[in-house]
Structures are given as structure tokens and as C-alpha cells.
Design a protein around this nucleic acid. Structure first.
Length: 572
DNA sequence: GCCGTTTTCGGCCCGACTGTTTTCAGTCG
């Protein structure tokens, strides 16, 4: 049993968390965290690299020890050190440490002084008022712990699309290779490209005598078989993700794909139309009386009720059915429409690669331009740029542009919007840039009014071009800060500035609703990766997924413009 | 635990904020 990259990364992360609670050398902890991040970001499986005889220590941050540990996980599917650490430090403490306001030191104190080994222990200790008695804790901390436990329990556990993709890909590949399988498609919210998915629904087109079900439940990443039948099985992967597999005949494949892609609201809407025409739609086809009149393809199913085929990203019953009937479905933006990226970092701040490497990576993706937007000084932890360092970077970009062919680096900054709505760097240096991406990183706990006012005030500065990750949310980690997004979008439209769709799969901020709001205002949306290393430029596709869910066409996306048109669009 | 060559040890991003204190530890980003 070998582990996938995601699973290797998960184990390194858990190890880092547990060691941190134990008070291990913080740099050792960081080494494990770095390794987790690195492995998670690799497109090729560690197992493949090892099989090919590659030297893993050539990866940055991987030395002999970590290479051995990766090899151990690939070979044995397990990591002895992690088992050892779990034996002496309860794994549930990791969950506790992820509560806001609790870090390794406090978790250790809670564990040692109050025997807290689980969230439930913690809740009881807080309710009994025992936490406030501890040194370094007080009433406010105790109340905040209780509040965060409750918030957490209300949350539905969903998996980010990027992670779901990484977990599903090997399964899809394996199923495709099974005898008798003609086609494999992932349906459900995954196919609709929702930012997170609850589970994964896979459809295979195969004859009844295909051994696909046995292959599915026997897949190496399966931890538990929940149910197994001839046409449907459900398993839980080791990662905790639930996967349903359905086997469908060719004649019903399109109907099943529509049915299992959903959304539920979309399906109800199209079934209602079918009823009006005297038809019945189910997962086996479109039926007139008992005769199947469509079912093999999706287009055929939609066609029977006089609808154009609807892209899965739109199937949310948000107007797509009417649009399909009236022939005014949007021509959704695609990755090929993108001409450049307007937000990325370099090793001058918290990125991994230098200007030249980023330029090369962008050129390799066929882009015409890439904006370099490192952090400003306020973000000290990322080694943000002060005016002097930014001036040096400006000169370096000018020099590099003279050498580059086919790609232009734009001089930019991700400048912090300070608490009072001013920008973190003086206008004199900001004026020398091609564009300014402006962001809130600190002071996210302001009221809705304060936060909205702060951002609108920042936009009053004519040097303000693009608001980065507008709500600050981190999927599954942190909700959006309170903000009147409609007012911010209107403010941007009035002033000639823009609001970003951050394509990082943990952000995807704007969300799909925000994109729709922007589109109604005629406000072009920049889709930007916020890349912190060259490979992150590939996050673009997650941003495009989200933009498509928000009904955006190429003309609605700022970075589909040519360099010349982009420059005029940015001018205020 | 990784890295580098003024290396085989000693450094590795650090300032703001919160809640706890009454000068600061812990957490966050």
C-alpha cells in the first residue's frame, strides 16, 4: 500500500503539529511543514519519482532524513515516527490546536494541567470554569474557546476541490483501465466545480459483466467499504473522503450524468419542464409514456425539452434554464482566454522563485504579461518591501524586461490597506509602478461598516487598481470578514478600479455570487493566482472554474485583455 | 530537519495584537 502525495503531506503536517505541541525544535517543525507543502504541490507522485530512481534530496527542503521518511511512506504506507509520536501525544490535540486562539503552548498546558485529550474534554473544562484558573488563561480566553468549539461543531466537513481532485485522479485512472469500462466521469458538485465538495460521485459506462465494482472496492486507497452492489457502491478513502460509484449502461449514460451532476434545484427545474411536455426525466432517460426518447447523451436529454446543453458550472437554478431556453447562455471564459496573471510574489518577499524564473514560468504558460506584486513593508512576516527595496525591484524588472522576449513583466505591488484606509507605501514610489494590488491583511476584526469604509477610502486614492482577495476568507479555516461587498463592487466600478478573484484554491475570493454581482455592474474581474512559486501559476484553472460558476465570459475578465488594452483599462 | 562554503555548526522571516499581566507570553499572519 503506497501513499499519494496528499496523504504524505497530511502525515508530515500532523507530525509537525504534534511535535510542536511537544515543544520540539521549531525549525525542525518548520522543516516538516515545508515538506508537507512541497509534496502537496508536486504534480508527480512521490512513488513514481522513487520508482524512477530519482534523488528526492534534490527537492528544496528535503534532506536525507525527509527523503527516507517519504520512501518509508511510499513503501509501507505508514510512518513509524508518526505512530510513535501519536502514542505519547493524543492526536486529538491537533484538532484543538487548530481552534482560533489556541496554539501549541496553550494546548500543552491544557493537556498537562487539566488532562484535556479531546475537544469534548476541552468543552467540559471550559464549561466547568476550570480553564480560567490556569496561569496565562482568563475568562475571555475560556469564553472564546467555548465559542469556537460550538462554531466548529456546526460546520459541515467539506473537501476543497483541489484536494478532491488530487484524491480522485488516481481512482479515475484506475477505473478507466478496468476491463469493460468505456467511460469514466466524475459528476456531482465536483463536476459543477464547486469550491468544496461533500463527497465524490463517479459514473462509469460499462457493461453489467464488467468487474468494475470489485476493482473499485479493492482500490488501494480505500479504507472502508460502506456498501457494495451491482450498480452502486460506496467507499471511504483513507483520507476520509466518501466516494460513490455508479455503473450505467450506454443508453442511459447522459441521463445519469445530468441526474448525478445536479444540482438538485437544477434537476427539479428541468423535470418540471419535462412534466409540462408530458415527459418524465429520471436517471435512466427521458420517457414519453414508457418509451425512452433520450438518455445516451446530455445534449439529447436537454434537447427533448428544447434546452441547449448547459455547462455544469451553471447548473444551480440561478437563471441558466431560462437562458438555455432563450438561447442566451453565456459563452464562459476558458483558460485559453487568459493572457496573463496580475498577482504573484517572488523571493524578494515570501515567494520561492526570482523574477526571471517567474517570467519564464509565465511565458511557458503562453502568457503575454505577468505582474510582480510582492508584499509591502507592513507584512513584516513576509519580509515586505519598503520604498528602497521596491525601487531596486523596479530597476531590476526594467532591466529584465529589456532581455525578455514575448513576455512583459509588469511592475506592481501588493500594498497593504492600513487600518485608517491609507496605503502602506508613499504615493511617490507607488506612482512608479504599472499597477497596485491593494489588500487587507491586518485588522480583519473591524465591523462591517468600518471595513467597508476603510476599503472605499483606500479606493479613493487614484493609485488604487485592484482589491486583492476581497473578503479575506480561507476555505475551511476562516470565514469572510464582515463587508458590504455590493458597496465595494459599486465603489470599484464608480472609481475605475477592480476587485480580484483570487485563484488560490484555499481562497477563491471573490466567490461565484460575487462574480455575478460584478458582472451585473459591468465590472471586469481580474482572475489572479497570488502565486508564491512558479508552479502556483497553475492555480489559474481553479480561478477560471469559479469565474465560470459566476457566469463570466472572456470579456468580463480583466486579464483576457491584450497588454495594450490592459494598460488602458487600468488607467483611472 | 535543512542548508551552506567566511559551513560540518549555527543559523533558520519577525512585528502587531490580545489577553493576560503590570512587563510579557502566546498567537497570528
Amino acid at each position: 500500500m503506497t501513499l499519494q502525495n496528499t496523504e504524505i503531506a497530511d502525515r508530515f503536517e500532523e507530525l509537525a503539529d504534534l511535535l510542536e505541541i511537544e515543544g520540539a525544535n521549531p525549525f525542525r517543525v518548520r522543516a516538516y511543514r515545508n515538506a508537507a507543502q512541497l509534496v502537496r504541490g508536486q504534480t508527480r507522485a512521490m512513488a513514481d519519482r522513487i520508482e524512477a530512481g530519482e534523488d528526492l534530496t534534490e527537492l528544496p527542503g528535503i534532506g536525507d532524513d525527509l527523503a527516507d521518511k517519504i520512501a518509508e511512506m511510499v513503501a509501507k504506507g505508514d510512518l513509524e515516527l508518526l505512530q510513535e509520536v501519536r502514542g505519547r501525544t493524543p492526536p486529538a490535540l491537533v484538532e484543538i490546536m487548530h481552534l482560533k486562539g489556541l496554539g501549541p503552548k496553550r494546548v500543552k498546558a491544557l493537556h498537562e494541567a487539566l488532562d484535556v485529550d479531546s475537544l469534548e474534554d476541552l468543552r467540559q473544562a471550559a464549561e466547568a470554569g476550570r480553564i480560567r484558573e490556569l496561569e496565562g488563561f482568563g475568562e475571555k480566553t475560556e469564553a472564546s474557546i467555548l465559542r469556537h468549539i460550538e462554531q466548529r461543531q456546526g460546520e459541515e466537513k467539506r473537501t476543497g476541490l483541489a484536494r478532491a481532485e488530487a484524491l480522485a485522479a488516481p481512482l479515475v485512472e484506475a477505473l478507466g483501465a478496468v476491463e469493460g469500462v468505456e467511460q469514466v466521469e466524475i459528476a456531482g458538485s465536483y463536476r459543477r466545480c464547486k469550491e468544496t465538495v461533500g463527497d465524490i460521485d463517479i459514473l462509469v459506462r460499462a457493461a453489467a459483466d464488467s468487474p468494475v465494482m470489485q476493482a473499485f472496492v479493492g482500490f488501494e486507497a480505500v479504507a472502508e467499504v460502506v456498501s457494495q452492489g451491482d450498480t452502486r457502491s460506496t467507499v471511504i478513502l483513507r483520507s476520509g473522503l466518501q466516494v460513490d460509484l455508479r455503473r450505467v449502461d450506454t443508453a442511459a449514460f447522459g441521463a445519469a450524468l445530468v441526474y448525478f451532476t445536479g444540482s438538485r434545484a437544477h434537476n427539479i427545474a428541468i423535470r418540471r419542464i419535462a412534466n409540462g411536455k408530458g415527459y418524465k426525466i429520471n436517471e435512466y432517460g427521458v420517457f414519453e409514456d414508457d418509451e425512452r426518447i433520450a438518455g445516451e447523451t446530455e445534449a439529447g436529454v436537454y434537447g427533448t425539452i428544447d434546452l441547449a446543453w448547459i455547462p455544469p458550472e451553471l447548473r444551480e437554478n440561478r437563471g441558466e434554464v431560462d437562458a438555455a431556453r432563450e438561447g442566451r447562455l453565456p459563452e464562459l471564459v476558458t483558460l485559453d482566454d487568459i493572457r496573463g496573471d496580475l498577482h504573484c510574489h517572488t523571493d524578494a518577499t515570501d515567494g520561492r522563485h526570482g523574477l526571471a524564473e517567474m517570467a519564464e514560468a509565465a511565458a511557458g504558460r503562453g502568457y503575454d504579461y505577468l505582474a510582480i506584486t510582492d508584499h509591502s513593508r507592513r507584512v513584516s512576516m513576509a519580509n515586505g518591501l519598503d520604498p528602497e527595496r521596491l525601487a531596486r525591484q523596479i530597476d531590476a524588472i526594467d532591466a529584465l524586461n529589456d532581455e525578455l522576449d514575448g513576455i512583459t513583466l509588469l511592475k506592481g505591488i501588493e500594498v497593504d490597506i492600513l487600518e485608517d484606509g491609507s496605503l502602506d507605501l508613499p504615493d511617490a514610489i507607488l506612482e512608479r509602478l504599472d499597477l497596485r494590488v491593494c489588500a487587507v491583511h491586518y485588522g480583519q476584526d473591524r465591523s462591517r461598516e468600518q471595513q467597508t469604509t476603510r476599503i472605499l477610502k483606500a479606493m479613493d486614492n487614484p493609485l488604487f487598481n485592484i482589491l486583492a482577495h476581497p473578503t479575506g476568507r480561507l476555505l475551511n479555516k476562516r470565514g469572510p470578514y464582515p463587508l458590504d461587498l455590493q458597496a465595494v463592487l459599486e465603489g470599484a466600478a464608480e472609481r475605475g478600479c477592480f476587485v480580484e478573484l483570487n485563484a488560490n484554491p484555499n481562497r477563491l475570493d471573490l466567490d461565484d455570487d460575487g462574480c455575478m454581482q460584478a458582472r451585473e455592474l459591468g465590472l471586469k474581474v481580474p482572475v489572479s493566482t497570488d502565486a508564491h512559486q512558479a508552479g502556483h501559476l497553475d492555480f489559474m484553472r481553479f480561478g477560471i472554474n469559479q469565474a465560470r460558476r459566476g457566469w463570466l465570459e472572456a470579456a468580463d475578465v480583466l486579464n483576457t485583455l491584450s497588454l495594450k488594452d490592459l494598460v488602458s483599462a487600468l488607467a483611472r
